[in-house]
Design a protein around this nucleic acid. Sequence first.
DNA 1: CGTCCACGTCTAC
DNA 2: TAGACCTGGACGG
Length: 391
Amino acid sequence: MPEGPELHLASCYINTVCAGLIFSGKVEKSEVSKNPEVLFESDAYVISATSRGKEIKLTLTPLKEEKNTLPGRGRDREELSQNGLQQPMDLVFRFGMSGSFKFTSAAELPKHAHLRFYTKESPHRALCFVDCRRFGRWEVHGTWQPDRGPCVMLEYEKFRENVLRNLSDKAFNKPICEALLNQKFFNGIGNYLRAEILYRLKIPPFENARTVLEALQHRKQSPDLTLSKKVKLKQENPDLLELCHAVPMEVIHMGGMGYGPEHSDDAAAFEEWLQCYCVPGMRSLRDGNGRTIWFQVTKPVPKRSSKGSSSQEKVAKRSGRKKGKELIQGAENAKAHEARKPNTRSRRKASASQASPTNKAPAADRKRQASARRSTGAVTAAPRSRRVKAE
DNA sequence: CGTCCACGTCTAC
DNA sequence: TAGACCTGGACGG
């Protein structure tokens, strides 16, 4: 589920399904979760949510004045005021790779529901934090993580300033595709958004981030134009930082749940919305952190039939982390009429992965294989299997 | 069956 | 800058 839009959509979902609902009792954690217990108990409380970048905050608010029946016993003293009243509580969540919220019948909790809030009504229902891979985290009495920057969706002006005022930061020494995942500056951008954003401007992903962003510092004004024409021009030619806001906003306004696991109409609409990420015909490489960056190779300037690799390919090759190791470019182009199928395997095994330093280790060690693959800078652009568009 | 891959952080050398 | 942390779907044999 989880880049900025999905987190924001989750907060909207929570506020919608919990509107006017009374919750009651304790907050229940699954046995298997390593996240902290939530020592909150109230006979009647309400739940609301807000989001910021890739975090979401739930606020549990007890109704009226309410006596706790077991003052202080088995409870952390801090949870209760001196007269035994349950205080409001904020919980801040990060979703990892698979977190989401679901509101269901309490009788049939979803699989991997690691935190549960029960309604007072009966039959009870439950708001659940569901997280199959358990990379998600929550913090009791949480606050927005201090190292994360302003939200690209809800705090656009602050976000933009934070980037442009800090271009000397070493975070911008990196390729733009890697800088875009730095949550200190791009809180809310994730792997599919960086691909979609760079694709809109056809910015080669391994261009230096500072070089790309310095060009935005002094926006060219055309004094001869009317204000409305300036506005129109700006809307039709958004720059990179504007797209860091506008592209996630498109996902929010699509109405569904964004990049969700469900095979629903929403998921199909999201898939249709993607222009680059996992799209047949696009290419992909591993970035310096081993994450897959999807991009389109733009045509080299058709100057006097230069036969070398495109400038993008050169950039990509330079990005390889192990000097001397050659990167493999699997450059198979999918036919234009083929539809994407995001959840199918996209890579074929890169032959470079065979060239691990000590290939004699007989046991199949997944971790070492994985890192060997990464360090060769193995590249992928295998076609995704075909899925015929429903018409 | 085994392997590879996934929307993201974290933290330990 | 490697792993570690996890589950499960899609493929290949």
